[in-house]
């Protein structure tokens, strides 16, 4: 709803004035597409600015998906704007040479180039072997440059924005967009910099997982729910973009120290896993809705985890344990090999304290000591057969919380639907977007 208002706003501004008439429908359509592309691009800053009020109804993992689709739309409209003029009114476009062309026309071309590069660098980050941190810096840099260039292009061209009445309103819309950017990139990191945390412990959890324990040096984190995550920046500065989302693994009533469990999977997380106690850190959160607290009236839970997707599930289980919540929980936990199963002993311990039933689903079981005596295991991948076999028939109405790689979740979802699990009872959190 808010998004729709944001998109329509520029058009309302234009039509509120007395827009100049032009006999060419195609030219006007091209301008219309240009404004639409700009509105869609502006909306991206609201989506990615972590503004809690706007994002509350959605799962945090869906925002990047939404961001991606809307970005394609924005670039498609931009290309449409360009193509229509190119095909029907090539004279309007002037010369390509930036020395001879008016600056605002060059700005338009720069904007188009920035946004196309944004999409290509995001869709093909792995193929281009772009490091996550550098990709993020490039992404923010290109987005800001492209957007500024696009604003320059619109104001410079002056179509529909040049009349006295409209100009003020148009500037207000522009200032609102700029405000979103200032909030995300300056105000929020500045607030974080005023509220540092300190790493007090870096603990080995086995299976390569490290747990960082942080103590607030100022305000503690308040009101987080089990399974929520926060953006963590260690060392450096909160302005640096060198931050990653991690699940808060401490149960909410066990503050003010909070901990994050980190499995070094390359890029920057290996560096985080080596953090020394005493290092300053910054936290932005909490975010996310992957929590048992959303389902206070459920009779039980089905949880499905793939690999490192276990972390938000662990946080939820810790909360159930801390509250002595004895509702049944059936956990299917998929890993490629038995050796890489994280929190194996921790899960076994919890199963003695709460009504937790864990089944480890191992794709490539070892040749020896298999199956293990003291754990329930299954071989292969989580598919429809396995779900039907392992999940209790009485649990179809229970919340089904899944977290893992997107292909795994996309394969499981239809199987659950077929078993009769209502759509509203399937909650998922996807790990890894770009």
């Amino acid at each position: 709803m808010v998004a729709a208002v944001g998109l329509v706003l520029p058009y309302l501004v234009i039509l509120s004035g007395d827009p100049p008439r032009d006999p060419s429908l195609m030219r006007n359509l091209s301008y219309g597409l240009g404004f639409g592309a700009l509105a869609l691009a502006g909306l991206q800053f609201a989506l990615t600015g972590r503004i809690k009020v706007l994002l509350r109804p959605f799962g945090a993992d869906i925002i990047p998906v939404f961001h991606r689709f809307l970005s394609w739309g924005a670039v498609a409209l931009m290309l449409g704007h360009f193509a229509i003029l190119y095909l029907w009114h090539k004279d309007d476009m002037g010369v390509l040479n930036p020395l001879a062309a008016p600056a605002y026309m060059t700005a338009g071309r720069v904007a188009l180039l920035c946004f196309v590069t944004l999409i290509v660098s995001s869709e093909f980050r792995k193929w281009l072997r772009l490091d996550y941190l550098w990709w993020r810096r490039l992404h923010v840099g290109l987005a800001l440059t492209g957007f500024a260039a696009a604003i320059w292009h619109v104001l410079g061209a002056g179509h529909f924005t040049g009349q006295d009445g409209t100009r003020g309103l148009w500037l207000a819309v522009t200032v609102a967009w700029a405000g979103l950017i200032v909030h995300t990139r300056l105000i929020r990191p500045w607030r974080q910099s005023r509220n540092p945390w300190r790493v007090v412990e870096n603990r080995d959890e086995g299976d390569d997982i490290r747990t960082l324990v942080l103590e607030p040096q100022g305000r503690p984190l308040r009101d987080w729910r089990p399974g929520q995550f926060a953006w963590l920046a260690v060392g450096g500065s909160p302005f640096s973009l060198r931050e990653h989302p991690f699940t808060i693994s401490t149960a909410p009533d066990k503050g003010p120290r909070i901990s994050f469990s980190i499995k070094p999977l390359g890029d920057d997380s290996a560096r985080l896993a080596r953090t020394k106690p005493g290092t300053t850190a910054w936290i932005d959160g909490p975010y996310g809705v992957f929590t048992v607290d959303r389902e206070a009236d459920a009779d039980g839970f089905v949880m499905i985890a793939g690999g490192v997707g276990i972390t938000p599930i662990m946080a939820n289980l810790h909360a159930l344990e801390a509250r002595r919540d004895l509702r049944p929980v059936h956990l299917l936990y998929a890993n490629d090999s038995w050796d890489e199963v994280a929190f194996r002993d921790e899960l076994a311990r919890m199963a003695t304290r709460i009504d937790l039933h864990v089944t480890h689903v191992i794709q490539n079981p070892p040749d020896r000591n298999w199956p293990p005596q003291d754990h329930q295991v299954a071989e292969g991948r989580i598919d429809a057969d396995l779900l039907a076999r392992l999940l209790p028939a009485k649990g179809r109405d229970w919340p089904h919380m899944m977290c893992g790689p997107a292909p795994m979740l996309e394969a499981i979802r239809p199987a659950l639907r077929q078993m009769g699990v209502p759509l509203g009872r399937i909650h998922s959190e996807i790990f890894e977007m770009v």
Partner: peptide
């Protein structure tokens, strides 16, 4: 919310933008 719903919502917003562009173009064409 599932990814397909996100796609549908995104397509609706893009369609809305497109519709606005067409309305604008028709309105200001003399």
């Amino acid at each position: 919310m599932r990814p397909r719903l996100a796609l549908i919502l995104a397509l609706m917003l893009i369609a809305l933008t497109l519709a606005c562009a067409v309305v604008l173009a028709v309105t200001v064409t003399r």
